[in-house]
Simulated assay, not measured.
Amino acid sequence: MIWMSAAFEAARPQGRDARFLEQKGCGFKSVYRSYVVSAVTAHASDLFILRPPYPEFSCGASWGRMRRKIVQAASTFAWRLAIRWDASEMLDFMTTTVSGDFELTMDELRVVARYVAETAQEVLPVFEDANPGDSRPRAALDAAWEFVNGARRTKLQRVTSLDAHRAAKEASTEASRLAARAAGDAASAAYLHPIAKAHQVGHILRAAASAARIAEINAGDDPEVGNKMIEQARQRATPVLIDILERYPLAPAGKNRIAQLMTTLDDSLRASR
């Protein structure tokens, strides 16, 4: 958005704040992005939060197209937090709901993350037994549980999720690859997007499908074992999880076994309502 771009520049720290941030080794981009987030929030609620003590901060003419000088300066509180947080973390602090094609609350995201983390925890030993020196999936699972247990979502979940998925790509067996990926899915569940796209269902159900496939492999590729695991995953799903799932389209069809198992679980969860 053009107006947002202009607002970024309008909110760029100057003078004493610029020198302070430079001394702290902070990048300007993440800091003045948080200024803008604070300003947008203040505008949306018609509340002007605490003003910092520095008169150099003002909004430019482009920003004033929306409302002339919405905020003379970003909140001192927002400014201090911006030193440590990026824009998405700042937004998470100021809201308990994320919006897109529909809404997801942080509590709902924690329900999803718990469901995925419980599955990932069951199969993580499959990876660790095969790769005793690789702690990346374990770190991702730990990050997922931090969010589930009430911590706000941060870069920790994103970074550890990516690391776990890299570990999955490097795994030497299908079972260990799926176990590492499930741990990565657990961490990334904190950032499930509220957009009506079929691939998002994978962030909710792929770990359970992976666990079922691991059980099949350990049983000599017995599909009946996988089907039993899918039934167990269905029974573990809470009404809240199913409600979240139904906001998304059906799981994408596919020929591989993971896609088939995920479709089976998706169908059974929707039919259980």
Rank of each mutant, 00 (worst) to 15 (best):
V40M: 13
A6T: 11
R257E: 05
A171Q: 12
R177D: 00
K197D: 13
A168H: 10
G184Y: 03
A196Q: 15
A180V: 08
L109W: 05
A73F: 02
V31R: 01
A208T: 06
W145H: 08
V225I: 14
F57T: 05
P194S: 14
V31A: 03
K228S: 00
S135R: 14
R177T: 00
D267Y: 06
A10D: 15
E146R: 15
F102H: 14
A73M: 02
A271G: 07
R153N: 06
A7V: 07
T95Y: 05
Y115N: 02
T173C: 09
A39N: 09
A151I: 00
A18K: 15
L162T: 09
W3H: 13
T264P: 00
H165R: 12
S210M: 07
S268E: 11
F20V: 03
F8W: 14
E122Q: 11
T264V: 07
P13I: 08
T119N: 04
L104C: 11
S34C: 15
G27N: 06
T119W: 01
E22G: 11
Q232F: 00
G60V: 04
W3F: 09
A168T: 11
A18T: 09
M262I: 03
P223F: 03
D134M: 00
D46S: 13
F8S: 05
Y32H: 15
E170R: 15
P239S: 02
G64D: 12
L178Y: 06
G226M: 01
Y115V: 01
E216V: 06
P125R: 03
F77R: 13
A144W: 11
R84A: 01
I242R: 15
W145T: 04
A44W: 09
Q157L: 05
S272A: 12
Q23D: 05
G226Q: 02
L250H: 13
R84P: 00
V225Q: 08
W3K: 13
Q121T: 12
M66T: 14
Q121F: 00
F28L: 08
S272L: 09
S172F: 03
S34L: 05
A180T: 09
G15H: 13
A186G: 05
N149H: 13
D222R: 09
G254T: 08
M66I: 15
K24G: 01
Y191V: 04
V116A: 00
I70Q: 03
S210R: 10
V31W: 12
V36G: 03
H165T: 03
Q235V: 01
A42Y: 04
